[in-house]
Amino acid sequence: MLISRRAIVAASAGLAGLAILPIGLRAQEATTAPVKTADEIIAEFTGGAEVSEGDGVTLTAPEIAENGNTVPISVEAPGASAILVLATENPTPGVATFNFGPLAASQAAATRIRLLKTQDLVAVAKMADGSFVRTAANVKVTIGGCGG
């Protein structure tokens, strides 16, 4: 049987169309709201001010978390007005922002969070004088906690 050039072109165009279709669908599914990166969230929190490493803020988290669905953490920063907590490798890095009012007896709070995988947690504290300090803690996660 003799296959004409025209037939081949038509057939391959059809195949190409089929191949493109599922990719197009997948791309559409993935376009949800843009997720801010950890750095962007920190920049928003600090207003672009410089963040120094180290003293003044403490982040307590387990070294190894067996279940990433509920990881107990606590943060403390004496004299801070607010503390931002981030999980750098989560699908959405934001965790929480604690704003302390005049009746807060200590600038500390504890909660339970989800972690997708082994990663660094970051805490940034806004001190009373307007400066920022940050600290980080690595948590090893055995079973991820973000579903899917």
């Binding site: 669905n69 509920t70 990881v71 999980a87 989560n90 959405t92 890095p93 934001g94 965790v95 929480a96 922002t97 604690f98 704003n99 302390f100 009012g101 807060a104 709070a109 909660t111 339970r112 969070i113 989800r114 972690l115 906690g145």
Partner: peptide, 10 residues
């Protein structure tokens, strides 16, 4: 205390 919570909270 005034706290903003994100989806990462359990």
């Amino acid at each position: 205390l005034d706290t903003t919570l994100e989806p990462a909270i359990s």
